[in-house]
């Protein structure tokens, strides 16, 4: 226990001696993690939207008036790619249109007859909800006798996916660059500290201190810098959530159909803190391994 308290005391001394460079290391770590956090949030939001819309992906087959709708319905229900199939009759289609038009329903009164076709709405099985599968299935539906036209929308879901990937890559790229800068700053900080305490380390070695006790404070210094940096990043992201979430929620609900806007889960926080410790530890390890040969 006394050795642990000695180690912690030495770590405190090392951090105090590092001064401003410790602060720079903490700020760079915080900047790196905040950047990664924001980009990952954006990517995750797009990912959620993509998953949401992939689940909602549909093929609509409009039938001609002579088609045997029930027979077609039974046919498509037998296909494994089809999760659900529903027949929308001409009357239902007209009723829906009335609902959409709301206070302008009187426009429909001037129609001589119901011009809307009956249709089959097909929901896709999870493994078929890709552009290729959707296109293939749409083609198959279109070849059925009695099907007049087929509509499907998959491309923009894929576009969401592409954006998500781009944002993830950009976020990880910028974050990675900043993380590298943070590691190098921690390394510089630890290197300066080892130089400042070189004489002390010599004395410690000569009085029989083990290498763990000599190098430990520098490793702990890096880890503490990383964790504090991660805590600052968590604070920034939490502040962003408090400030931005209420403003973004309506926009996201309208455009992407997403309700809650959550920046960070407790798991994200834990990963960020662990990442900080690893990042800082790595930076110190580089300095300690390089510059502290006994």
């Amino acid at each position: 226990m006394s050795r642990v308290s000695f180690l912690l005391g030495e770590t405190g001394l090392t951090i105090r001696q590092s001064g401003w460079i410790s602060v720079v290391a903490i700020l760079l770590t915080a900047l790196s993690f905040t950047t990664v956090g924001l980009f990952l949030w954006l990517a995750r939001t797009l990912g959620n939207a993509e998953a949401h819309w992939r689940g909602e992906m549909r093929i609509v087959a409009y039938l001609d008036d002579e088609a045997n709708a029930q027979s077609l319905l039974q046919t498509v229900r037998g296909w494994p790619e089809v999760r659900e199939a529903r027949l929308v009759t001409k009357a239902e289609a007209l009723e829906r249109l009335r609902g959409y038009l709301a206070d302008r329903r009187e426009l429909l009164g001037s129609l001589p007859s119901n011009p809307l076709p009956a249709s089959l709405e097909l929901g896709l099985a999870a493994d078929a909800a890709t552009p290729e599968e959707t296109q293939a299935l749409a083609g198959r539906v279109g070849r059925l006798r009695g099907v007049d036209e087929v509509q499907y929308t998959a491309e923009w879901v894929e576009r969401l996916d592409r954006w998500r990937r781009v944002l993830s890559a950009v976020g990880l790229g910028i974050g990675g660059f900043l993380a590298l800068a943070a590691v190098l700053t921690v390394t510089t900080s630890a290197t300066l500290a080892t130089h400042a305490r070189r004489r002390e380390m010599e004395v410690m070695r000569l009085v029989g201190a083990g290498e763990g006790l000599i190098r430990g404070p520098f490793l702990l210094q890096g880890m503490i810098q990383g964790i504090v940096g991660a805590l600052v990043a968590l604070g920034c992201l939490a502040a962003a959530e408090i400030v931005l979430a209420p403003r973004l929620a309506p926009l996201l609900a309208l455009t992407l159909g997403l309700e809650p806007v959550t920046f960070l889960s407790p798991l994200d926080g834990a990963v960020l803190l662990a990442g900080g410790a690893v990042l800082g530890g790595l930076g110190s390890l580089l300095a300690v391994g390089r510059g502290m040969r006994p």
Partner: peptide, 26 residues
Amino acid sequence: RLLPDRTVFDNVALVLRVRGAARDDV
């Protein structure tokens, strides 16, 4: 080879502390 930023007591106690001696013993 005394450590300039440590007191006389801490300079001497260092030898015991690196070996993990108990506080009272130190």
